[in-house]
Amino acid sequence: MATATKTTNWLVDMLTSTLGRKLIMALTGIFLILFLVVHLLGNLQLLKDDGGVAFNRYADFMGHNPLIQAISIGNFFFILLHIVTSIMLTVRNRAARPVQYAYTQEGKSSAWSSRNMMLLGTIVLIFLVVHLQAFWAKSKFGGLSETSLDGKSVHNLYDATQVAFAENWIVAIYVLSMIGLAFHLFHGFKSSFQTLGLNHKKYSPFIHHVGVAFAVFIPAAYASIPVLMFLKQESMSLFALVGCFVLALVFSMVIKPKQELKKSEGGAG
């Protein structure tokens, strides 16, 4: 019969266990959540009505500051780790049920987003590839026009975003991907706290509500950038962001955390 294999190194032992893999998912997931916040703050400068001066200055700073460069390498590493670990978990989880049920009603006991994290993650991944090759690769490896700013010549990344977001299909890809991200975060945000062992009736409802608000606000705010640029309505940006925020609050209030279950004590049904 199967017995637990002995591994000598405790760290390898821990990180290759099911719980350890989930720890990696949660920590990298939380890092990516923080990244989403910082990246959004920077990108919102695209909506400033100044012909791209503020955004290009920011992009130039981000592209040349050594600390940012180091963090960006860490970011790539963490996203890769998140993806590789998610594949290892998915392979294991599929193998754990070799014969499927002929008939299931999984929807009665769990949320759709929680059962489709790999699908949702893949949508985010496809988006990342499209997004990185459109903007990041161009600013690294060439393909951007130049503009002069503060007396020096810098990449005109703002111009590239304007060209991209004038295409309706690119805007559509962005919006759809953000819906995928929203569902990924809807489950992922609270799930990461559960994985880290943080589940307590004192603060879990708070994590739930913040998580729902986050899962709505962040993707909606991201999506508003290409939409407003497509519509050439950058001046409406403040209005749009307030709208995203109100939407997030409404969702957060409407979607309640799961009730604490009452013991059934083997009662008859």
Binding site: A4, T5, S17, T18, N93, E106, S114, S191
Partner: peptide
Amino acid sequence: MIAQMDAEGFGACTNTGA
């Protein structure tokens, strides 16, 4: 117990709550 659980081939937890 977790080492044995893993050795038996059970899946990991996605926190679905099912």
